[in-house]
Amino acid sequence: MRLIIGGAGQGKLSYALCTYNCTLADVTETFFAAQTGQVFDHFHAAIRAALEAGKSPQRLTEELLEANPDVIILCDEVGCGVIPVQPEERVWRETVGRLCCDLAEQAESVERVFCGLSMRLK
């Protein structure tokens, strides 16, 4: 598994497609589809959807990695703002951050994309 993080709009998907020889057809956006896809884009949004559906994003992530150990996960960094007033927003933001830490520990590589440029963190 590879992890690519960065702020919104920084060009993570273009970077992943160019670097790992994939096309838009290889890109998925849900935990279910990502089990058989090469790239899992908008991981942070899938976490929100899971929380809203009352499912455990941690459990879904474990299942994903079991089914697809080579998946490339793209996730927005969402933790650099003011603490949200809404409790659900706080839980989401925290869950995204913690899951990225877990993924980064297990990942073969961790890259950060900024203004379309990449930096390898691991």
């Binding site: 919104a8 709009g9 942070h44 960094e77 969402v78 650099c80 949200p84 989401w92 933001r93």
Partner: peptide, 8 residues
């Protein structure tokens, strides 16, 4: 400016 990482 880097204003893209607040998740809002």
């Amino acid at each position: 400016n880097e204003i893209f990482s607040d998740g809002v």
